[in-house]
Simulated assay, not measured.
Amino acid sequence: MIAPFRRCGSAFLALLLGTSLLIADNAAADETPAKALFGAKALPAEMAANSYGFYAKGCLAGGVAIPTDGPTWQAMRLSRNRRWGHPQMIALIEQFSHDAADKVGWPGLLLGDISQPRGGPMLSGHASHQIGLDADIWLTPMPQRTLTYREREDISATSMLQKNKFLTVDRSIWTPKHAQLIMLAASYPQVERVFVNPAIKKKLCDTWTGDRTNLGKVRPIYGHDYHFHIRIKCPAGASTCKDQAEVPAGDGCDKSLAWWFTDEPWAKPTKKPDAKPVKPKVTTLADLPKACALVLNGPAPASEAAATFGTAYRAAAPAAANDSIEQVIGASGDVPPADIPVPMARPTLQ
């Protein structure tokens, strides 16, 4: 009777050990930075489009990628795989790019980061852009040719600021069309804010002679001298998404802007001599809305082309698999192709 008991005891110990290791593994996974989890996803979750949480703390289901090239735009920094967004964000970018050409005479938009395939925190560069409702637009006009992959990675956006002069727009670079472009972006009712450098906001305050109704939407913020940042409102009826507080009344050309031209915003924080170093908090999956775990682990679309065009537009997706930039981004070769495939046009998302 002893041997069977020993065998049972050994099996129990093995089960207990296995369970302990599983618990330990799960605990370790819980401590994994959320940015590492979401940054590893190459494709969106095959779900209905939804933004979960806040712009700087959330995720995106049912994301759609804007094609790498359109008649009035080209996407930059393709290796980052951040040209995904909520369908309403992608639709706005496409509409804005066409309107910019027709109404402003802008030669085309160079698109910076929108969001990762499933949103969430990014490995680098942004605190926001997590729910597919933010997009960066370069202040550099699009050249009248299709840029190569390497050019999209290496070309730098042009700063609008004068070198060696604090918060001053360079008049040799800035043009009235830059102002018209930013104000056009702010004119759409679904746009909640347009973030720009304080010097650009001041330039608009001092020189904009058109309708100033939407000037208050243009908000000063650190950086943003190379590009501006469009943020749209949560989709109507989206209870899973949290809007930012409403923009204060007025054009924003007041004391709140003047503050940026004082020393306070740029002063380094003072540390007490006896203060202990504060360990930076790592955002984990548990810190995000609960739905983000489902988004993170949800199934990917059956094909990259379907993901690019979205569930509702698969009939319009390019038939050839090599029309999908995801294959270029994920290529195993060290040197990417010299030119980027240009996807077929698709219907504008409503």
Rank of each mutant, 00 (worst) to 15 (best):
F309Y: 15
A302R: 12
A157T: 08
R231N: 12
A61M: 09
A28C: 08
A320Y: 03
D154Y: 10
D99S: 11
Y52T: 01
F38L: 03
S51Q: 07
I232F: 13
H178Y: 06
M142I: 04
G112C: 06
G132S: 07
H98M: 10
M160D: 01
Q190A: 08
E326K: 11
A320V: 08
I221V: 14
L296H: 07
I114M: 15
R150M: 14
G223Q: 12
L22Q: 13
S187I: 03
P337T: 04
F166T: 13
L78W: 00
A275P: 00
C292Q: 05
K57R: 15
K41M: 15
E151W: 02
S187W: 07
A305V: 10
V218P: 01
Y313C: 11
H229K: 07
H178P: 00
T175F: 04
P343E: 07
Q180T: 06
L21S: 14
Y313N: 15
V104G: 06
A236E: 15
P336N: 09
T262A: 08
L349A: 11
A157E: 01
A56N: 14
T213G: 03
G119S: 08
R7E: 01
K276T: 14
Q130D: 01
L147K: 02
K165P: 02
A306Y: 05
K41E: 10
A100D: 04
V169A: 06
L349I: 15
T270F: 09
D225A: 10
A179G: 13
K290P: 02
F96G: 00
A61H: 06
Y313I: 01
P318F: 06
E304C: 10
I66R: 03
A307Y: 00
I221E: 11
P220G: 03
